[in-house]
């Protein structure tokens, strides 16, 4: 390395202040009592909330899967359009993100409410009303709506870089459209899939605004749980930190399991999928 380290200095400072220090503080609070003595009690108490954590993981998983199923074809179609159409499509998915997150979620409330827009619309045809708000479905919907762009963007980026001559080579060797997809397109876009999953799953699993607004009080998620510990009436930063800490560990495990899926070596030895 002959490159100077100085240009990296501001980033190192930034990362230390805004990433490393908070992490250390979370860990510190998680393992101490309110008076500052070491304890495992906080972590043990997290055990009470395992059902909530599992539910959060499950809802985040469902939302991520839906984002992938919607986002993948969308990104593929977008990447194969002319540059003008591409730009327009890109604008359309980015546009909602310019709006405030709370506002976006509020608007879904008014749509899904028992006498909201959707139920009134269906009422015209004599259908419903349906119980839509305050359900897990509504929470998942909100997560998909809010985080879909985080799935599409990395997928689109990698699809733009895809080597189309490989598609032709596979067709030339006798691959039908499905075989082209599994053998050429999927392996080439795997990195984008992983990035997309990470970018949707991580915020989904710890979301609290969406679950509170669209899930009502009934669909408590782990994010809400953490947020409550820092609320004014039962202030318990030690427990909050402990839940955060456990959640972080779980997410880390999820991500590393996913990244194990294909390290390049395994793939090279492995056969093609048919």
């Amino acid at each position: 390395m002959t490159k100077s380290r100085y240009p990296a200095f501001p980033y190192i400072v930034f990362m230390t202040i805004f990433i490393v220090v908070p992490l250390i503080m979370v860990a510190y609070f998680a393992f101490t009592t309110s008076t500052g003595e070491f304890t495992m009690q906080n972590i043990i108490r997290v055990g009470d909330y395992i059902p909530v954590i599992i539910k959060s993981l499950f809802l985040a998983f469902v939302a991520t899967a839906i984002c992938l199923l919607l986002g993948y074809p969308f990104a593929y179609i977008m990447a194969n359009k002319t540059s003008n159409i591409r730009r327009t499509m890109f604008m359309l998915i980015m546009l909602p993100m310019w709006m405030n997150f709370l506002l976006r979620t509020y608007s879904w409330m008014t749509i899904l409410e028992n006498n909201g827009l959707l139920n009134r619309f269906l009422g015209f045809f004599g259908i419903g009303p349906f119980e839509m708000i305050n359900t897990q479905g509504a929470v998942v919907l909100g997560m998909v709506y809010d985080y879909l762009p985080f799935m599409i963007v990395p997928l689109y980026t990698i699809m733009m870089k895809m080597d189309h001559s490989l598609v032709q080579a596979a067709q030339d060797l006798g691959a039908n459209p499905l075989q082209v997809f599994t053998n050429v397109i999927l392996p080439q876009t795997m990195q984008g899939i992983k990035t997309g999953i990470t970018m949707v799953f991580v915020p989904s699993v710890s979301t609290f605004v969406i679950s509170r607004m669209l899930g009502g009080g009934s669909e408590l998620m782990v994010g809400d749980l953490i947020e409550m510990q820092f609320g004014s009436n039962n202030y318990n930063p030690n427990l909050g930190s402990a839940i955060s800490f456990v959640l972080m560990i779980i997410v880390l495990i999820c991500m590393s399991v996913m990244n194990q899926f294909d390290s390049d070596d395994i793939d090279k030895e492995g056969r093609i999928a048919i």
């Binding site: 001559s165 032709q168 080579a169 596979a170 030339d172 691959a175 793939d267 090279k268 030895e269 093609i272």
Partner: peptide, 30 residues
């Protein structure tokens, strides 16, 4: 994919995620 012709492309277009053996075996695996 239904034509009985095969092509050696100008830029070779080998599959980067497969080794030499699997690249050659590709058509037969299909």
């Amino acid at each position: 994919y239904k034509r009985e012709v095969n092509t050696v492309f100008q830029k070779y277009a080998l599959f980067p995620n497969l080794n030499v053996y699997e690249n050659i075996a590709f058509g037969l695996r299909l």
